[in-house]
Design a protein around this nucleic acid. Structure first.
Length: 213
DNA sequence: AACTCGGGGCA
DNA sequence: TGCCCAGAGTT
């Protein structure tokens, strides 16, 4: 596998934008803190189920102070259907504690500070920076990783280097947009199993398609 | 690099 | 019933 040429990369982004003109974050939130909580909950869970949980959860709890009123076990019950609920409950409460104690209950907007919060890795930090603070970032989840390496926007076996490849190959003012386009494509056509290559406009340049033909 | 956490939707 | 889902922490 190699990576595409610059002109091909331009065409890929344009094609994906035509295919998904409304690609955007599908998690429901009204504040950076709500997005941070929703993104922690979204690990190995569909965003639809996260939205079902947060729709009720955020009615009663939408600030770090609110969540600190809950015991770990109480929060576990509220978020149970998102899976990994023990880890997520610890992460949300630990993060809430730090925000109240050190950040005046505000969510920091730098990757370094976000990644110090329990349960916040590079992917979650990038999602928050991009969708809550308008900073350009490429959050590499399973979809972005798979699709970009199949097509040839990246050529790497780990997510950190995939992010480096993407930042190198994609203009900085399009990082956040590209992130959403790759997720939409991964969920609808370039699926992990049985990808719908016959529906994909990127067949002409895609390394994965060339390999499977 | 491999392992663990996990309930719910869907075939 | 088996497989999979907008990851992160530990060993």
């Amino acid at each position: 596998m190699k990576t595409l040429k610059k002109q091909e990369i331009r065409e890929v982004i344009d094609e994906l934008e035509k295919l998904y003109p409304n690609a955007e974050c599908e998690l429901n939130f009204t504040t950076p803190f709500e997005l941070l909580v929703a993104t922690i909950l979204s690990a190995q869970c569909t965003d639809k189920r996260v939205n079902i949980v947060t729709e009720k959860l955020f009615k009663d709890y939408n600030t770090p102070e609110d969540f600190l009123k809950l015991k770990e076990g109480e929060l576990e019950l509220l978020i149970k259907s998102t899976g990994f609920y023990r880890n997520k409950s610890k992460s949300i409460l630990g993060t809430s504690r730090i925000l109240v104690d050190k950040y005046n209950s505000q969510v920091p907007d730098t990757r370094e500070e976000l990644m110090k919060l329990p349960g916040v890795g590079r992917k979650t930090a990038n999602v928050v920076m991009s969708n809550a603070f308008g900073k350009e970032a490429i959050a590499v989840d399973t979809h972005v990783f798979r699709v970009s390496n199949r097509i040839g926007l990246a050529n790497s076996s780990n997510v950190d280097k995939t992010e480096e490849d993407l930042m190198k190959n994609i203009p900085e003012n399009e990082w956040s947009k590209a992130h959403h386009l790759l997720i939409f494509h991964g969920r609808r056509i370039c699926k992990a199993r049985n990808p719908q290559c016959e529906l994909c406009p990127l067949r002409g340049v895609c390394f994965y398609y060339k390999k499977t033909v």
